[in-house]
Design a binder for these strands. Structure first.
Length: 850
RNA sequence: GCGAGGGUGGCGGAACUGGCAGACGCACUAGACUUAGGAUCUAGCGGGCAACCGUGGGGGUUCAAAUCCCCCCCUUCGCACCA
């Protein structure tokens, strides 16, 4: 508009700028932002705001879920910048992982090369979306400068005893002679060679997250900025339960403790069950007549994969071990069984069977003809063990329980626990469902675990000064599935850091969740070469003020990141104990009701949308179509609607620009035009001005308090509609340019976080010199909000019959009289007598007539 | 089975503490401008001729219920033998 060129078109002379040319505008500003780097976080000063979206796996291309995630984050970041906050808004790459290795096997491309190519492509896509990242802080977890510190953290955990090695069951393919991840097992078979997968034990590394179970649980209460849904999921995952460990023993005196939350039922124990994997089993069955049968049973159970094994659908199967145990409270001799439904990994791996009061035990006992002994009687009836069809699990009074007879069972839970402790036959304990975190992966494309095995010195950590343990590049990716690291002689063979003798490296790499458990801290000091990050930087920026990502990470990633933050805190690396103050879990992007996926073929490529409609349109649509937490149904027509709206904004400004003028001078840059507030304005201008300020209020609240971008956008649309009406319907001589200018500038400011390119362009067209994205967020003028009149709804018996426009401060009595006097109202009252009249000031009058 | 969401026009969704149900947008219908329109603008748009009826169904509280209470149905997600 400043440089007014003209195109001769078929229709005549049309100013070029009357059409919204998104591609030129978007390219222009992206180039400018690339050069001037306006989104780099400033040094540690001012009110900080850390806005973070979960970093992506560099799969190759962005999908709509990414676009949604980053659009939400970008609005939040830009909004806070305009609030004057010192915003850090970084991006990086969760770059280790299996797909890179599969690409290597399938296409012969090295995982590193494949990954870095993908990163370059996706970074370019992000830039085309106009996302305001501070690229100077970019990290990639597969870069040695990054995974060096992932390894460093492993060593810190090892030193604190939080990293340890133990045998654990894994999926094993006998044909490939390798370990398989759960997702590589399809219907119990190897995804590559279709061989039946077996279970085997392997030495694997674990992180002792269970040490933090209590804190992970207790701190949830403090996370008031997290959705309840996520907190509940984590709470269930941690699964704290209080109970008693009862010191049962076998007949021969072998200890066989059990964990129970129901010590009140301990007199009703009629048998005991141990997990087939329980270490005591060997001893129990050795030399007994049924040893062979039992061993066959164990092999059978162990062949089941975890999913079948732990499903409630699976039939409960068991076998008598041949041995007996003694109940420590009453000396009863009870048979010891083995069963598939008892888990070796929870509690003590053994349970007491109380069929009368536990449904699983009941089913098991009925199936195998084990006795049922009632020890809790309900208050309202008498249970008969022989006639029971299901376990009685509710409250009642104890019977057949020695000195506890007659006690209410809730009291007995406490009393029996205490009694067992006194007698030394048990202790009150807490158990967790949460297991230690298995971090070993038998893969190439991950951070190598920095450990060396020396025949002389045993397990030796790699000294910190020798980090990183680099991934060798020259390895072979054959479709055998075996970890390439194990076959790389140059990698495996090393010297012991301790004695200098020949030694072998650990060939497992770390779970990628380890990499993503601390990246948010690395961003605060991303190029530090001496430390993962400086404490001062971390303490300034952390915790993350707003974290945004998919709900699929509600448990694992978010729990691991919390655990790591607690460990980092305990290592003295940072002050905060919790990494994320506020969490927003966004919904999925759907098409025709189901998740977009390649196999379904219902993918919409972000590039195509950006090419056709521009980034601003894509962002606007995805934010407008649904509130962020809900699933979003993709609609091409909806996208067009958003494009139409932006064009409408463009035309509005292009149309008005000659009338509302360029800024008189640059000195007022930084201030939005202020229209006069006085009563000297015509009514039409006052009304328009009120709507401008109401919109400021509404948009500000929708963004900052509710994250309801859809309603924020709709109120901006209403403002645009009002501006058109004013422009086209109010006589030109009555129109007030100052009010229009205020509206237009406000409109652009409010829209700037959503459509950063278009608003920047128009902002400059209006004669403003500085970037709109560095402008302060508009504030509403309370005086402008005040309306002099208000429309009152008049109801008779709760049904709307008419409306009334009255001065805003009208006396309620007067309002009531006016309402009663209305023609339509009288009609509906008819012959009935008027009873109560409810007057709600500024809203309605309801006349009750009987 | 347990836990947490959700159910509002043809569609996506509004309605914040009980106070005009359907904002905003899409689709659709009619018209204007036009050589043309998949551009733009104008008007209409829950159902019913109407009285009225309408927020998954049924009951209740209230002057007033999408919103609060009770019962039920459907649906999405998470966990799923944790003793």
């Amino acid at each position: 508009m400043r440089t007014r060129g003209f195109l001769i078109m078929a229709k005549g002379v049309v100013p070029v700028q009357e059409k919204y040319q998104f591609s030129a505008v978007e390219e222009k500003w992206q180039k400018k932002w690339e050069e001037e780097k306006p989104y780099e976080a400033r040094s540690n000063q001012g009110q900080k705001y850390y806005c973070l979206e979960m970093f992506p796996y560099p799969s190759g291309r962005l999908h709509m879920g990414h676009v949604r995630n980053y659009s939400i984050g970008d609005v939040v970041a830009r909004f806070h910048r305009m609030q004057g906050d010192n915003v850090i808004h970084p991006m990086g790459w969760d770059a280790f992982g299996l797909p890179a290795e599969n690409a290597a096997i399938k296409h012969g491309i090295h995982p590193a090369e494949w990954t870095w190519q993908n990163i370059d492509h996706m970074r370019a896509q992000m830039k085309r979306l106009g996302l305001s990242y501070d690229w100077s802080r970019e990290v990639a977890s597969c870069a040695p400068e990054y995974y060096r510190w992932t390894q460093w953290f492993f060593l810190q955990l090892y030193k604190k005893g939080l990293a340890y090695k133990k045998k654990a069951a894994v999926n094993w393919c006998p044909s490939c002679a390798t370990v398989l991840a759960n997702e590589q097992v399809v219907d119990g078979r190897c995804e590559r060679c279709d061989t039946e997968v077996t279970r085997t034990d392997l030495e694997q590394w674990f992180f002792k997250i269970t040490d933090y179970a209590d804190k992970l649980l207790a701190n949830l209460e403090k996370l008031t900025g997290w959705p309840d849904k996520v907190k509940i999921m984590q709470e269930n995952w941690i699964g704290r339960s209080e109970g008693v460990e009862a010191f049962f023993k076998t007949e021969n005196g072998l200890p066989l403790p059990v964990f129970t939350t129901r010590p009140d039922t301990i007199y009703g124990v009629t048998y005991m069950v141990v997990a087939p994997e329980h270490p005591v089993v060997d001893e129990l069955i050795k030399g007994t007549p049924n040893e062979a049968v039992v061993r066959r049973f164990i092999a059978e159970v162990r062949a089941q994969d975890d999913i079948t094994r732990t499903s409630t659908e699976t039939e409960k199967k068991g076998i008598f071990s041949g041995a007996y145990a003694i109940n420590p409270v009453n000396g009863a001799k009870i048979p010891i069984w083995l069963a598939n439904y008892v888990l070796a990994s929870y509690g003590t791996g053994a349970v007491m069977g109380v069929p009368a009061h536990d449904q699983r035990d009941f089913e098991f006992a009925r199936k195998y003809g084990l006795p049922v002994v009632v020890v809790i009687q309900p208050l309202d009836r008498e249970l008969d063990a022989a006639a029971m069809r299901e376990a009685y699990v509710d409250e009642g009074r104890l019977v057949r329980s020695g000195r506890f007879d007659g006690m209410e069972n809730l009291a007995a839970i406490r009393e029996i626990g205490r009694y067992m402790e006194e007698k030394g036959v048990g202790k009150r304990t807490v158990n967790y469902r949460l297991r230690d975190w298995l971090v070993s992966r038998q893969r190439y494309w991950g951070a190598p675990i920095p450990i060396v095995y020396c025949p002389e010195c045993g397990t030796v950590p790699v000294p910190e000064k020798d980090l990183p343990v680099l991934l060798p590049r020259d390895v072979e990716f054959t479709p055998h599935g075996e970890s390439p690291l194990a076959k790389s002689e140059s990698f495996v063979n090393t010297t012991c850091p301790h004695c200098g003798g020949p030694a072998r490296r650990e060939t497992d790499t770390m779970d990628t969740f380890v990499c993503s458990s601390w990246y948010f801290a690395r961003y605060t000091d991303a190029s530090n070469r001496d430390l993962p990050f400086a404490k001062a930087e971390a303490d300034y920026w952390l915790p993350v003020d707003q974290y945004i990502g998919g709900v699929e990470h509600a448990i694992l990633h978010l729990m691991y990141a919390r655990f790591f933050t607690m460990v980092m805190h305990d290592l003295g690396l940072l002050e905060t104990e919790e990494p994320f103050t506020n969490l927003l879990t966004q919904g999925m992007v759907l098409m025709e009701g189901s998740k977009m996926s390649k196999s379904r073929g219902n993918i919409v490529d972000p590039d195509e949308i950006v090419n056709t409609y521009g980034a601003d349109t894509a962002r606007l649509f995805i934010l407008f179509a649904a509130p962020p937490e809900r699933d979003l149904e993709w609609s091409e027509q909806g996208v067009e609607g958003s494009y139409r709206f932006l064009s409408r904004v463009w035309r509005l400004v292009a149309d008005l620009e000659p009338r509302i003028g360029t800024a008189p001078d640059d000195s007022r840059s930084g201030k939005v035009a202020q229209a006069g507030t006085g009563g000297d304005l015509p009514r039409s201008a006052r009304d328009l001005r009120r709507q401008t300020h109401l919109t400021i209020k509404k948009v500000s609240e929708d963004i900052s308090q509710r994250f309801n971008f859809n309603t924020a956008i709709s109120s901006i649309m209403e403002l645009v509609n009002a501006a058109y009406l004013y422009k086209d319907r109010v006589p030109v001589e009555e129109q007030v340019p100052g009010v229009l200018r205020e509206l237009v500038e406000t409109l652009l400011l409010l829209l700037a976080p959503f459509a950063p390119h278009l608003t920047e362009e128009l902002w400059h067209e209006l004669g403003n010199a500085r970037s709109i994205h560095g402008m302060p967020w508009p504030r509403y003028d309370p005086a402008a909000l005040a309306a002099e009149e208000v429309t009152i709804v008049v109801q008779v018996n709760g049904k709307v019959r008419d409306r009334l426009t009255v001065p805003i401060e009208i006396d309620p009595e007067e309002l009531k009289e006016m309402a009663l006097g209305m023609e339509k109202v009288r009609e509906f009252i008819g012959g009935k007598s008027v009873g109560n009249v409810v007057v709600v000031p500024k809203k309605l009058v309801n006349i009750v007539a009987r």
